[in-house]
């Protein structure tokens, strides 16, 4: 991946790749994230679970500043994301995001969805952008759909294009917000497969999901959120077999 950026990273190397430090987030008067501190290490797959409304999506959206935070700091590779003076367009290139509703650009073909940002944001040449896009489409198993419009693809295919589109910017970390929740059950597997492959390649990932099988299998760490707080974190084996908190036990028992 982008070695140059890794080298030019800010600060001495004594920090996690993605850091949340005492983060508070309010929507009006509603306190949605309460004093969240979390370090996601380079190469780690961090799966965030928790009941509906617990703040999982908000946490991810703060991580690339689709939402502003009111207290604390979020840093990528030592550089503040939440600082009002941060060059957010530059930082976002390092943070790939995949949405529940795909959000592919309907007026662009699959391959154009992948080349748009590299060309317009980074100034990559047309040919180079296309070549990289073709590689990525092959990686998600969609070489034959390069010239299809999103309308012409199944939900699973669209979501795989969306993952490839985020990867086209060579991000340092990938954020996934319930990316299989809008899919028909039979299409979930192909998307999880792509995510598993990414994890195996060492991509740093923050994944909000209800797919407990995926969490158990792929996560390096599971984070349980409830009412805006992180109530438990742990390795998947210990968390799923033997949760430490009562809240963790309750959450797991409801899944069964």
């Amino acid at each position: 991946m982008s070695d140059s950026d890794r080298d030019s990273a800010g600060g001495p190397g004594d920090h996690a790749l993605l850091e949340f430090e005492h983060v508070d987030k309010y929507f009006g008067d509603t306190h949605v994230l309460k004093d969240i501190s979390l370090d996601v290490e380079d190469g780690e797959v961090c799966v965030v679970i928790g009941p509906s409304g617990s703040g999982k999506s908000t946490l991810l959206r703060c991580a690339n500043r689709l939402e502003e935070i009111q207290n604390g700091e979020i840093r990528l590779d030592g550089r503040s994301i939440s600082d009002p003076d941060a060059d957010i367009n530059r930082l976002r290139q390092r943070i790939g995001m995949v949405f529940q509703s795909f959000n592919l650009f309907p007026h662009k073909t699959a391959i154009e969805n992948l080349t748009l940002a590299p060309r317009k944001v980074r100034g990559t040449g047309e040919a180079a952008a296309r070549q990289r896009a073709e590689e990525l489409l092959a990686e998600v198993g969609l070489s034959d759909q390069a010239d299809s419009y999103p309308n012409q693809l199944s939900g699973g295919q669209q979501q795989r294009v969306a993952i490839a589109r985020a990867l086209a910017m060579d991000p340092r970390v990938m954020l996934f917000d319930e990316v299989t929740s809008a899919l028909d059950p039979e299409l979930v597997g192909e998307v999880l497969e792509v995510m598993r492959g990414l994890a195996d390649e060492g991509m740093t990932m923050m994944v909000v999901t209800h797919e407990m099988g995926f969490a158990r299998e792929v996560a390096d760490r599971v984070v349980l959120m409830d009412e805006g707080r992180i109530v438990e974190t742990g390795a998947p084996e210990s968390f799923f077999e033997n949760p430490e908190t009562e809240r963790g036990e309750q959450f797991l028992s409801k899944l069964l």
């Binding site: 689709l66 367009n89 995001m97």
Partner: peptide, 29 residues
């Protein structure tokens, strides 16, 4: 859809660029 702007911004596009490349072509249609 709001998600179009968010997707464009999350790829590092600025507001004007996202409007020009992503939102306006769809709005025009």
């Amino acid at each position: 859809h709001d998600g179009q702007m968010e997707a464009a911004r999350s790829l590092g596009m600025g507001y004007v660029q996202a409007m020009r490349e992503v939102v306006i072509p769809q709005a025009w249609r």
